[in-house]
């Protein structure tokens, strides 16, 4: 299901961390394991999963902040998997990120104007002087005023700081923006302001978003497509509305049922998974959910599960549900 016009295409992307377990021993941690997803322009792919599922490692791989162990990454048709040096630096203007903690991701010593101008200076060889005008326009676009350019991060509220983070990510007009839990440290009323802003920027500029989150309420709102990760594997993916309406993988099912919803008539349900998520080091060779899965059979322990398409675009890695 990938076309030449896709903004981002990942094929069998894998990252293995070698962990020291003793003086002469080590173990391989498959943080991201054979992940293949793609995003078309103007769409949002949400990656959901609990801590340790590999969401953040996936984001760092895509942005080429760490090197993949295997597989490939194509951004707007260009293979960037092994790209280096100046070529990679030029590419970075096309892919940007908005971080979870708006304060931590802004330099406390730099003015807002300097922070927002930086991608232009780095990736488009602009001078600070030339950048002033586009920075002012960008600040206005994200709901701040051009005067904010002279302020420092500590003078901003959490919502304003996140708007600066968004302005910085958008100023080079990127094709892909990775949003790593962009609203989870914000208050409810501010959260919705930021989501609306992200949405309108996407419509206006046809940007692709990779939206990483554990907040299913926010994902339900913003995602077009959804990929559910568990211990480094994508266990289910497809159009968000379809996956929310009829989850097929037992893990997706458990995750959706456990998520509270702001409706007093709706009650969450938790009795689906056994125990807690094991460390990725202790994973069975077969299905990552083996051991916690309520419908598992013996073969699941050592038969790897591939994603199988069950309906247009809706894929699930569970032989019992395909």
């Amino acid at each position: 299901m990938t076309g030449p016009s896709d903004t981002l295409v990942l094929r069998d992307l894998t990252k293995i961390f070698r962990i020291k377990t003793g003086s002469f021993r080590h173990a391989d941690l498959r943080a991201v394991d054979d992940v293949s997803v793609s995003i078309t322009p103007g769409r949002t792919l949400a990656v959901v999963g609990e801590s340790g599922s590999g969401k953040t490692t996936l984001a760092r791989l895509i942005l080429r902040l760490i090197d993949p162990t295997g597989g490939s990454i194509r951004l707007e048709g260009t293979d960037i998997t092994r790209m280096k040096g100046a070529a990679l630096e030029d590419m970075r203007g096309r892919m940007q990120i908005v971080f979870q903690d708006p304060y931590d991701s802004l330099s406390p010593w730099q003015t807002v104007g300097r922070t927002v101008a930086e991608p232009l200076i780095l990736h488009e060889n602009m001078s600070m002087q030339d950048a002033t005008e586009p920075v002012a326009r960008m600040l206005e676009r994200v709901g701040l005023s051009p005067e904010h350019a002279r302020r420092y991060p500590h003078e901003l509220s959490g919502g304003q700081a996140q708007r600066v983070g968004i302005a910085r990510a958008m100023i080079t007009n990127p094709a892909l923006v990775v949003l790593d839990e962009p609203t989870s440290s914000l208050d409810m009323s501010v959260q919705s302001q930021i989501l609306l802003l992200l949405q309108s920027l996407q419509e206006e500029r046809n940007i692709s978003y990779l939206f990483i989150s554990h907040d299913l309420t926010v994902v339900r709102y913003i995602a077009h497509d959804l990929a559910v990760m568990y211990l480094g594997k994508v266990v289910e993916s497809g159009p968000a509305a379809e996956v929310f309406a009829s989850p097929r993988h037992p893990y997706t099912e458990a995750l959706l049922k456990a998520a509270p919803r702001p409706d007093p008539h709706y009650k969450t349900d938790h009795v689906h998974l056994l125990g807690e998520q094991p460390s990725a080091l202790d994973r069975a060779p077969g299905c990552p959910l083996y051991g916690r899965c309520p419908i598992a059979e013996d073969v699941c322990a050592d038969t790897p599960q591939e994603l199988v398409e069950i309906e247009a675009g809706h894929r699930v890695a569970c032989w019992k549900r395909t």
Binding site: S157, G159, Q160, D187, M188, S189, V190, Q191, S192, Q193, L195, L196, T217, V218, R220, Y221, A241, R261, P262, D263
Partner: peptide, 23 residues
């Protein structure tokens, strides 16, 4: 009222009504 309606509209995929300003 607005806080609840923001949460419900996010949950149902509707467009939330913004509360302007900040706490």
């Amino acid at each position: 009222n607005q806080l609840v309606s923001i949460a419900s509209s996010l949950d149902s995929g509707g467009t939330p009504r913004e509360i302007p300003g900040r706490v």
